[in-house]
């Protein structure tokens, strides 16, 4: 066998022996120390109060958060109002459906239904 091969073999064997020997070389004293530390740290951690939880958000707050906070909500509200205003200002010809049109051209009967008891359902 050539010197190079012998050197490789020697190194490989030394590394393998070193890896195997270390598994055996760990003293039971060290393991006991590590285990004692583990239990001590664990007990300490279990005694500590849990960190204060973040306050619970209402559904509205969650929606505001998802949409990017109050600033974004302000923009969104302004855009909504502007949209409604453009629609209303454009007049009835822009309103395609009867329902939308009725928002602008309410007839007298609509008001009567609000005021007159005879429009109410009679159950008995």
């Amino acid at each position: 066998m050539g010197d190079d091969k012998l050197d490789d073999m020697m190194l490989d064997d030394l590394f393998a022996t070193a890896a195997r020997e270390m598994e055996e070389a760990v003293s039971s004293d060290l393991l006991a120390r590590v285990m004692a530390d583990a239990l001590a740290v664990q007990a300490e951690q279990q005694q500590q109060p849990e960190p204060e939880k973040a306050p619970k958000l209402t559904m509205f707050q969650v929606v505001v958060k998802v949409l990017g906070g109050w600033q974004s909500m302000g923009g969104l509200a302004a855009a909504t109002v502007a949209g409604v205003w453009i629609g209303v200002a454009a007049g009835p010809e822009m309103m395609q459906s009867d329902w939308a049109g009725s928002l602008l051209t309410t007839n007298a009967e609509s008001y009567l239904s609000d005021l007159d008891n005879s429009y109410a359902f009679v159950l008995d």
Binding site: A19, A25, V26, L31, M35, A38
Partner: peptide, 13 residues
Amino acid sequence: RILTLRLTPRVFS
């Protein structure tokens, strides 16, 4: 216990 037995030999080595 398992972590102690598993990891201590490696860090010691």
